[in-house]
């Protein structure tokens, strides 16, 4: 059976393919910035592994307040709030697109795929809403 190869175009799949690479790279850099800053403010002697990783991936208020050292004054500023929003936006989009790719590998074409994509889009928006709500209510700024 001849496999039908889609024509090369600026399609949805191409955009998402590019997005997965770019967001993956971005999240790695954001994580390194988080680890770097946590080490700079004394993670080596004053944080456990969980706290360090909270700083790395999602330095929101409840996470940082849960650590042993009082770092809030070094952390409450717009820079880290922007970091949280960028990280969570990339992470949730990357995650749900990856989920969509895996599931669609086991689906044929047709209206079922369209329905599934609609459901994933709804879940994606719902997760973004929840995550943004957590950032807003976590005592930041």
């Amino acid at each position: 059976m001849q496999r039908r190869i889609p024509a090369r175009a600026f399609s949805f799949e191409y955009i998402m393919w590019m997005f997965m690479r770019i967001s993956g790279l971005t999240m790695s850099i954001l994580a390194l910035v988080g680890i770097g800053y946590a080490l700079y403010i004394g993670a080596r002697t004053q944080m456990d592994m969980g706290t360090l990783l909270r700083w790395t991936f999602f330095p929101i208020g409840t996470h940082v307040a849960a650590s042993d050292i009082a770092v809030l004054e070094q952390w409450i500023n717009p820079f880290w709030t922007i970091m949280q929003y960028v990280m969570i936006l990339f992470a949730i989009t990357h995650a749900f697109n990856g989920f969509r790719m895996v599931v669609e590998d086991f689906m044929g074409a047709g209206w079922g795929t369209q329905l599934f994509r609609g459901l994933v889009a709804l879940l994606w928006l719902f997760s973004l809403f929840i995550a943004f709500n957590i950032i807003q209510t976590s005592g930041a700024i």
Partner: peptide, 24 residues
């Protein structure tokens, strides 16, 4: 890669939903 990606979506997703339920 697929297995770890799906696990991260599941576990971190549950963690975020748990935080939301507790806070709200």
């Amino acid at each position: 890669h697929r297995l770890s990606g799906l696990s991260i979506l599941l576990f971190v997703g549950l963690h975020v939903i748990g935080a939301f339920l507790t806070a709200q």
